[in-house]
Computed example of a mutant assay.
Amino acid sequence: MQRIAVEDRRAALLAAAVRVIARGGMARASTRAIAAEAGMPTASFHYVFTSHAAMVEELVAAILAAQSVAVAGSVAEAGSLREFVGGALQGWLDRAAEDPEVEVALHEIVAWSRSSAELRRLAERVYDGYAGSIGAFVRAAEERFAVRWAVPREDVARFVLVITDGVAARWLVDRDDAAARRSLATGAGAVLGLVEA
């Protein structure tokens, strides 16, 4: 039998977890189901991850990191604040559209983790991760375009999260790209309206 490197097993199990969670929710995402989806024995799961909770935490961290990198790429060439804000908002939607299973899985993890005080930290981790990423983009806008906000930076970041999260959640239901783009354009205008005159 061919040996598979631990990192390759980890990647395969995380990808399998996304598929299982997106298809059946967290209630069906047992270690056995995830290992079977990856085409591995359950023992392989326990060889890679210390627990189911550890796997979920690692999955959340990987998804958030990939989202942040994708959005950073969407604003790299922005020549104006308007392009930067529009590109950042569109980048979040593009990431969801590129791999909707990942976005569905993340929504499922958040909903599941709110079910108990013990698990709630995962939902908090997701939204803390979003806040950190968006906060970094808000600071980058300040630095690149000498922006001063009419409200505290944290409020700008929270508002951007409300826009992106809402548009992505709606898009997951209707998959209406044109409507999502219109909503993001409206949102970008609202964010630009927070710039101090």
Rank of each mutant, 00 (worst) to 15 (best):
M1E: 06
R3N: 06
A5F: 07
V6I: 11
V6L: 09
V6T: 11
L13H: 14
A15S: 12
A16D: 01
V18W: 05
I21M: 05
R23W: 04
M26P: 01
S30M: 09
R32T: 12
I34M: 02
E37N: 05
E37K: 15
A38Y: 05
M40Q: 10
P41F: 06
T42F: 01
A43V: 06
F49Y: 15
S51E: 11
H52E: 13
A53I: 11
L59M: 09
L59N: 10
A62D: 08
A62M: 09
I63A: 11
A65M: 00
A66C: 05
V69I: 14
V69M: 04
V71T: 10
A72I: 02
G73A: 13
S74H: 11
V75F: 03
G79I: 04
G79D: 08
S80Q: 05
S80G: 07
L81G: 02
V85R: 00
G87N: 03
Q90V: 07
G91N: 11
W92M: 14
W92H: 14
D94V: 00
D94W: 02
A97W: 11
A97H: 06
E98S: 13
D99N: 06
E103A: 15
A105N: 01
H107R: 12
H107P: 00
V110W: 05
A111V: 10
A117Q: 07
R120E: 12
R121V: 15
R125A: 07
Y127Q: 12
D128K: 08
I134E: 07
A136E: 10
A140F: 04
R144T: 01
A146W: 06
V147D: 04
V147E: 08
R148H: 09
R148C: 02
W149G: 00
A150I: 12
P152R: 05
E154S: 01
D155P: 00
F159G: 08
L161C: 07
I163V: 15
A168E: 11
A169Q: 11
R170K: 12
V173A: 03
D174K: 01
D174H: 01
R175A: 06
R175I: 04
D176L: 09
D177I: 03
A178C: 02
A179G: 06
R181Q: 11
G187F: 09
V191I: 15
